[in-house]
Amino acid sequence: MLKVDQLSKDFGGLQVIRDLSFQVADGERRVILGPNGAGKTTLFHLLTGVKQASSGNISYAGTDISAMDAVGRASIGIARSYQKNNLFENLTIRENLMLAASAATGKSNWFIRDASLHADVKTRIEETAEMVALSDQLDMMVNAISYGNRRQLEVGLALATKPSLLLMDEPTSGVGPAMIDRFHHLLDSLPRDITILIIEHDMDLAFSIADRITVLNFGEKVFEGTPAETRGNATVRQIYLGEAK
């Protein structure tokens, strides 16, 4: 279980996250909604340890991880995909996935054996490529594939580390309807033992995959509930849905 307790973050007096508390159960699909500047990406920075909270606590699987750095949090199974593609541009898709798989399985400390030849790593590359539908392009250079494929790889890099908690920052940002369908399919097919937090702007996708939805506005939690409850809530409609539609 991921437990966020009274989390706050300020940048030079500006409060980006304000007294935020919520819990995500194991295996849950939690969608984070909120207008631009609501602090969603900052929340992800705080959860992954890229930035440290000004106050408050984060605990995951029963341990307090507030003081843990990004590397430490990644190694206990928290993975993240980025809103802007953050890939290994001059390497192939296979090499990208191989790096993720080696990093997550400690093969970065192998000084003699070639991690890319290891059976575990190989199957993981193939499985992940299958999941994100990139199997037939494994040997393409990342800087030569389409934007949509890169979005898929972005998620693939996070998946290849076999996370138990996956934070996805707008996986469908900038892609067309066909690709959104693919992502929908991908999210549906992910094993239920992965807990997923997802920032998503596509309402249909968000409402159909979410178990629960947390709505942020100006760094504060303004609502939390099931998709149906969220749809019916007046505040949410006003600050978010009203603005979007």
């Binding site: 992954t48 890229v50 990004a70 590397v71 990644a74 190694s75 993975a79 993240r80 953050n86 890939l87 290994f88 541009e89 001059n90 390497l91 090499e95 191989m98 790096l99 993720a100 080696s102 990093a103 997550a104 093969k107 970065s108 070639d114 991690a115 890319s116 890099l157 580390t161």
Partner: peptide, 17 residues
């Protein structure tokens, strides 16, 4: 291999632990 990964994108390599 990971060294090459760091050369290519240090920040992502960190995010992967």
């Amino acid at each position: 291999r990971v060294l090459c990964g760091i050369h290519s994108n240090e920040n992502r390599m960190q995010a992967m632990g």
